[in-house]
Design a protein around this nucleic acid. Sequence first.
DNA 1: GGCGCCTTGCTTAAGATTAA
DNA 2: TTAATCTTAAGCAAGGCGCC
Length: 307
Amino acid sequence: MKHPDLNLLIALDALLQEHSVSRAAARVGLSTPAMSHALARLRDQLGDPLLVRAGQRMVPTPRAADLQARVHALATEALGVLAPAPVTEIAKLDRMFRILSTDQLMTVIGPALDRKLRAAPNVSLHVMPPQRDDSVQLRDGTIDLSIGVYDYAPYSDLPTDLRIQQLFDDHYVCVVREDHPTVGSSLTLAQYAELDHVQVAVRGPPGGYVDDLLAKHGLKRRIARALPYFLAALQLISETDYVMTLSVTLVKRLAGKLPIKSVQPPRSLGLESYQVSQLWHPRNDRDPAHRWLRDSIAEAARQTIRR
DNA sequence: GGCGCCTTGCTTAAGATTAA
DNA sequence: TTAATCTTAAGCAAGGCGCC
């Protein structure tokens, strides 16, 4: 099926608005002959002269006069569809963003992010726990953005169709209750392995990175309690003799708010630092509102870590 | 006759189609 | 996939038409 040339719709609109080939040409950025050719094609296609000479002027035929309002509405709509997305006024933005993040990261950057988001009073934020594989929901559009640690499996081979931006570097520290009966300011590897552990297992069953490192030393720890939330885990730590290994930025953020103390993990364990990043689907790359959200998160992270 | 506007013929470039 | 060919639309130059 041969489709009509929709450029002719724009040309016809200009001709019916201007009642002049030369002015219509100037209006759409064509030469006069080019517009004249377009008028000839329109005449041929519609079987009507559309504009006819009346002295030095061109006047519309009844058919053209009848089409004028419809053509103008269609041309305006078409140009609107093809125009670049309007610049978003953040203060007037009315939208809900859905992001995946742990309570740990929201505790660290949440207050600073909230201050940023207040620039858009009608923006709301729905934070949900991370999934086994965040990329699924990023791809299908059910979430807008994911914040987390993506430099380990299953994300070490991050799909190339997703965008990632590093937010800040973090490393591990151990915490026990302030008046723990056996733990001082540091831990030996043997002591670390002997203690009962609390682990926050957000994405799946307990175990993982720390256990893999212990296994290299022929050691194994007992995970006495596995919880989905960091704050609940820390509350538990403050009232028991368990030990927990977690983000130093979270521990700093909560300093003085819980009766816990941070303890150097055993150096020989080989815990490495890691990067916290935000992840999104490229369909949102050029969405001004989404870009504003990403910039707000990045700036909130910078402000929080600078402290 | 001069001027302004539109049309027409020709050339060129870009995109589409077809064949190898 | 590439090259050749065809089609289409734009611009340039020139001519036609109507008015003053």
